[in-house]
């Protein structure tokens, strides 16, 4: 069942169009990623889902309802972590959770959330004294305080160090295990690849593709490369004769074999038949980065 349906969403601010045409469908229980460079329209899209902004065109349905018209109802169903949102510096962790729990008709037990998200020791620590990772854990807890069906997480791990980022990924998976559907906005390829069941790639206000991470990668018609150091001289034509192989190069003592299909198997079979052992064998395949380049024509990191 579709829990979020965005159809032909269009949104402009004064003189520039933030979202041209975005359509996507999020199924209940999945982690759905919105991936794209800064300024692609990711945040505007989820703000329309949250009911914070009114679309200029298209429709948005959350749990079958209009986020603007039914905002009173939907606000009890959506938990939000906003990009660059903070709390008063002197507000303590426990107080924040307790306060926010009074906003909801059927809140989660805030003490329980405190321990679930490893914040028990920080209960009396003011917000201003928390580390980046602790702040994000508090924001996740606050997003879940109303017992929502959907959690929207916008750039959750931006500004975190790699360790804190990996810890936070673990937490996002735990959210899903609670049966909460997660809409995750990110511009980190690795984050989307690791967490998301499906990803919508957005570029310049349009959806370029919606697929699973591996589905996106398989769309790339990129060649694989097998590199190895042969233990004995090997005639190149033995490799180039293979239908899977498109080219063979020598780099120093290494052979670099490019091709498609089941390249590795074809190459190693030939080597075995001629009693050649492949040392330092490495296989390079397309990943989500390559998929992004193929879909948008540029690298994600460069487009920032």
């Amino acid at each position: 069942m579709a829990i979020i349906e965005v159809t032909n969403l269009h949104k402009r601010y004064r003189d520039h169009v933030a979202v041209h045409d975005v359509s996507l469908t999020v199924q209940r229980g999945e982690i759905f990623g919105i991936l794209g460079p800064n300024g692609a329209g990711k945040t505007t899209t989820v703000e329309c889902v949250e009911g914070l902004r009114a679309p200029d065109g298209g429709t948005v349905r959350v749990l079958g309802k209009d986020p603007r018209a039914d905002r009173t109802h939907l606000r009890t169903k959506i938990g939000v972590q906003l990009q660059e949102s903070q709390l008063p510096d002197r507000l303590r962790v426990g107080e924040a959770l307790q306060l926010y729990s009074t906003f909801y008709p059927d809140p989660a037990d805030w003490r329980r959330l405190l321990s679930d998200w490893g914040l028990e020791a920080k209960r009396d620590t003011p917000f201003g004294k928390l580390s980046g990772g602790q702040k994000q854990r508090l924001f996740i807890a606050l997003a879940l305080i109303g017992n929502p069906e959907i959690a929207v997480l916008d750039e959750l791990t931006t500004g975190l160090d790699p360790q804190a980022r990996r810890d936070t990924w673990q937490l996002v998976e735990e959210i899903r295990e609670r049966g909460v559907t997660v809409l995750l906005v990110t511009h980190f390829m690795a984050e989307a690849e690791r967490l998301c069941d499906r990803i919508a790639v957005i570029d310049a206000g349009r959806v370029v593709a919606v697929d699973t991470p591996s589905g996106l990668v398989s769309r790339v018609d990129a060649e694989q490369t097998v590199r190895f150091r042969p233990s004995a001289p090997l005639a190149e034509h033995l490799l180039t004769d293979l239908p899977e192989v498109s080219s063979v190069r020598r780099v120093g003592g290494q052979l670099v074999v490019s091709g498609t299909g089941n390249l590795l198997h074809a190459v190693t079979s030939v080597l075995a038949r001629h009693q050649v052992v492949a040392a330092d064998l490495r296989v390079e395949q397309a990943d989500l980065d390559d998929a992004f380049v193929a879909l948008t024509g540029r690298k994600l990191e460069e487009s920032k």
């Binding site: 949250e50 009911g51 914070l52 009173t72 606000r75 009890t76 959506i78 939000v80 906003l82 660059e84 949102s85 903070q86 709390l87 008063p88 926010y100 906003f103 909801y104 008709p105 109303g146």
Partner: peptide, 16 residues
């Protein structure tokens, strides 16, 4: 400051 820090905005995503 509450507006600058996004606290008011965060509140508008809650029922309050």
């Amino acid at each position: 400051n509450y507006r600058e820090k996004g606290i008011l905005r965060r509140l508008s995503t809650t029922p309050v």
